[in-house]
Design a protein around this nucleic acid. Sequence first.
DNA 1: ATCATTGCAAACACTTTGCATACGC
DNA 2: GCGTATGCAAAGTGTTTGCAATGAT
Lengths: 136, 136
Amino acid sequence: MKLTHEEIAQLLLENNIKPSYQRIRIMEYLIDNRIHPTVEDIFNEVHKDVPTLSKATVYNTLHLFIDAGLLRVITIDEHETRYEIGLHDHGHFKCNSCGKIYDFDVNPECLSVPDSLNNFEISEKNVYFKGICPGC
Amino acid sequence: MKLTHEEIAQLLLENNIKPSYQRIRIMEYLIDNRIHPTVEDIFNEVHKDVPTLSKATVYNTLHLFIDAGLLRVITIDEHETRYEIGLHDHGHFKCNSCGKIYDFDVNPECLSVPDSLNNFEISEKNVYFKGICPGC
DNA sequence: ATCATTGCAAACACTTTGCATACGC
DNA sequence: GCGTATGCAAAGTGTTTGCAATGAT
């Protein structure tokens, strides 16, 4: 189910983003590599195929995607900004040893809004755990 | 129930931290101002009373407290590192408009570990919501 | 006197910005 | 040709580091 460049271009257009080559390649990377990559990760990999790519463009593009609601920032760790293309709500587990981030399904109960937030308008819910993964 | 400097010194000693004046004042600030302050907040306020205080010392001291388990980093937003002295587990709500952070009690169900994390050793659990607070 | 803590300034890493070039309709 | 996206380099921010001065026991 790998998307073609045309399909990705379509996806971008639907979100009012002009599908430049760089943007398509960055989106392609994000779709194919659901590893919660950092800017570093994205830049390094896409740069291999698109040598002229600059980091500024990566930053620009990610912000574009975020504003369009296509991309989410994962804020688990200071000093480390990661991104993932938005699916359903789910939790993240970060291994403090190897640094890998795992997805997990959260108890739906969990995301119920407590009484104390009655008059709050909630746009985003996040759950994350930290610890050591089985491999470490 | 404001703690005296002596009581704070005692608290630090119990955690194997030498109670220097700066450390006491920083801890005092953290205890008296449960507003999830940033380094900026802490530095600015404590600096008023302790003019020689340097930011490096604030950073040093916060790391000391964190290592001792007295302090927690709140990672809600990239570009913004906030701290709170550790109490029970609770959720945080951040208002995207005024930036204020509210505490709320999370559904205990929420923090139950899902099957998919069976063999994971979990040391930290976090829940945070974002949106707009009633005041905004 | 010794060892730890502090404060300053320089170094760092990550991100943003400004601007000139290049690209696409 | 015009407007936008890109790439570079410089500027900006927040945090860390090295080291000399200070403070405590």
